[in-house]
Design a protein around this nucleic acid. Structure first.
Lengths: 315, 315
DNA sequence: CCATGTCCATCAGCATACCTGATGGATATG
DNA sequence: CATATCCATCAGGTATGCTGATGGACATGG
């Protein structure tokens, strides 16, 4: 009969225990808790049945009830447990407000330059309780794997068709622009695509991005670019352009647009832009903080899309 | 609607959460817990209603269910809480076996000499988990107050009629004996009471014990003892006797009976013996350890009573 | 493309648990 | 000895939790 254990107690019983101990009276405890005296009596009785002994001595009459040694012991644990519950409760409320927990976001270089700082600078002050972890990788596959294996909650991606199992929010299109040393190419906002073959170029190594670019160029009839330097670092490429080594085709996002020492020109006809998206595992619940991050990313992406639209010529 | 909190969750729901998370399946968790799948489904559903969001993502079909971020957070707290409960449970079981908690026992000098060591040496090995605190005091009133105010769980007492509110277990009678230097008094087991007036005596100061003794002697017609030395330390008194300074009337309990350098003699007629008892607050529950202590004290007291009975002459 | 198997959600029904309101017994107080 | 103040208990209605059966969603194999 003593096989029953604390496993079977109810928090209400522990709360009743605590209140009766504080008030030294069943009736007053009941009043404080919003129960009838009978209810508290039964709660304590049930607790005592479970424990196998009384938790209060009832002197009878107007004398206050008093904890037994057993009651004292149990009350100590009750206080611990109820405190733990209160702490957990606070944490849950913070979580619901997006103010507790961690958020791991995968990102890659071109996103990290312009987009991510804007998002983070809006997200962080609203969610100071979140442990935001940004993990950058050059390898898009690694980011996607990180998502699939649960290492990341969200990840920026370049939208392709091999994102099975992921849900992708398309944020905006990121066109390729020609980055040139000033005064080296014709004036104007755009450059004819077939002029590229005549230029000294700087490119990336064999990255997916570069591969796609090469394929798109070939499809547009341009091949065998004269690439004299390759780097995987966008900053390095831009520095090379600045130094007059050559021209580069770069995603607009990756370019430091404030650099006065380079000129940006659109291609004509346009190369197919990369679509930048934010992805997460499909059919998986998202923490409130993650949802908020996605929403902010959506807004920032929209704003960025619009800004590019303004720069873009009608034709 | 989100006003509900963790306060209202049931341990069973947390256990179900833990088991489903471990098994990654409602059905298997149900089997492990001895419920039907329906029951576990309802437990989790109820938990989710309380939390305001899902704790598992159910992909549907044979795919395993998976914790949501909310579920992960709650599971962490559930583990903490359940661990705490398990610890409390273990402690309660130890308490029930008299293997956990503290036991404060008040005592006084004459008890500490013979009786208490026997009791403690039997009690301690049986209850190694108990923090046994023995507190000795010369002042019996202090011991009784300590009981009434809850500083002690038990206390040895000399039984009197002013122990209101206490429950007293009488352990045995402790007769007064005359302690004499060898060869100073007549042979035999006992001494006539009126011979005392002729002896050089050693006594205590104005203690309740001494006061009672004086009153009893006066009632028996003996007064104005020739007391040449007083001390409150029984050992010191016995040492004085050993040194031949005089005789002492001492409670038998307080005498080191193994001392070959003194003689013990009963008084004739007998002086009213002190009754040694063990007391605790009336109507108050007692810890299992305390109950065990009382029982051991009862047994040891009984044995001591019998031993004295053997030494006592029939008349 | 359909049949099958494996999940979980849902429903009805029954048993149990819990609360309320009223009553009774025990204990101090005047 | 009467009264007041406690808590325990009882009867009754409601809510809750479980079982067993059924249905829908998803993946797999023919």
């Amino acid at each position: 009969m003593d096989m029953a254990s604390l496993q079977d107690v109810d928090f209400r019983q522990l709360i009743a225990l605590r209140e009766v101990a504080r008030e030294r009276s069943f009736g007053r405890a009941a009043q404080a808790l919003g129960y009838t005296q009978s209810a508290v009596s039964q709660q304590i009785a049930s607790l005592e049945r479970l424990l196998g002994g009384p938790v209060f001595d009832r002197p009878g009459g107007p004398k206050p009830v008093e904890l037994t040694p057993l009651g004292t012991l149990v009350l100590g644990h009750a206080d611990t447990l109820l405190g733990q519950v209160a702490a957990a409760d606070a944490e849950l409320r913070a979580f619901a407000r997006g103010q507790h927990g961690s958020l791991s976001v995968g990102t890659f270089q071109s996103v990290s330059v312009q987009l991510l700082p804007q998002i983070v600078s809006r997200f962080r002050p609203l969610h100071s309780g979140i442990d935001l972890r940004l993990q950058e990788s050059d390898d898009l596959d690694e980011l996607v794997d990180g998502l699939r294996e649960g290492r990341h909650d969200l990840s920026f991606v370049v939208v392709t068709d091999d994102l099975d199992g992921l849900e992708v929010l398309e944020l905006f299109d990121d066109p390729f622009v020609l980055v040139s040393p000033p005064g080296e190419v014709s004036e104007g906002d755009s450059v004819q695509l077939d002029q590229l073959a005549e230029l000294t170029m700087i490119g990336e190594f064999d990255t997916p991005c570069q591969r796609q670019l090469d394929a798109d160029l070939r499809r547009a009839g341009v091949s065998d670019l004269n690439v004299v330097f390759r780097s995987t670092d966008n900053g390095a490429i831009q520095a090379m352009v600045r130094a007059g080594v050559g021209h580069a085709l770069m995603p607009a996002l990756a370019v430091d647009a404030d650099d006065p020492a380079v000129r940006l020109q659109r291609m004509d006809p346009q190369l197919p832009p990369r679509t930048i998206g934010l992805a997460w595992r499909a059919q998986r619940s998202m923490s409130p903080a993650a949802a908020e991050f996605v929403d902010i990313a959506r807004q920032v992406g929209l704003a960025m899309q619009e800004r590019q639209g303004q720069l873009e010529p009608a034709g």
